[in-house]
């Protein structure tokens, strides 16, 4: 993984490293996957009818209504897309030896993880 990711970034960016364009690819992929999952989920959930329910992390595998799992999967893919984008930017900066801002990007990832831990613990 450690060697694959920079290679992917280089491939995406052409002969020079372009963290920006690699981040764009991540964003478009995230948008596409999330919108497909959610669109399908809306159709299934709407066909099933019934009242809307909240879905917590603990209910990801046993959601109250059909389609809810697809909707949650889409929501989580979308939510994690900006985080994936920061990872790509981090690798890009490390490659151009901008360690100061690679560290800043790592700190942002750390804060996101903290939010997840606090959230899951409720």
């Amino acid at each position: 993984m450690a060697t694959l990711l920079p290679r992917v970034i280089e491939r995406i960016g052409g002969d020079r490293v372009h963290p920006r364009s690699a981040a764009q690819v991540v964003m478009r992929a995230g948008l596409l996957v999330a919108s497909l999952l959610m669109s399908l989920g809306i159709v299934i959930r709407a066909a099933a009818g019934g009242a809307a329910h909240p879905v917590r992390f603990s209910q990801l595998l046993s959601a109250p209504a059909p389609g809810d799992q697809l909707l949650m999967a889409g929501a989580l893919v979308l939510a994690l897309t900006p985080a994936a984008q920061v990872v790509v930017v981090l690798v890009g900066w490390a490659r151009i030896r901008d360690f100061r801002y690679a560290g800043v990007a790592a700190a942002v990832i750390g804060m996101i993880l903290l939010g997840m831990v606090l959230g899951v613990r409720g």
Partner: peptide, 28 residues
Amino acid sequence: VGLTALGSLFIYIARGYFYPYPAAPVVI
């Protein structure tokens, strides 16, 4: 703003305030 929202969204999901069905059409 996407990163900022991500940080707090997990807290709302965990505390039972996230309704995926009404959320999905808005998001699409």
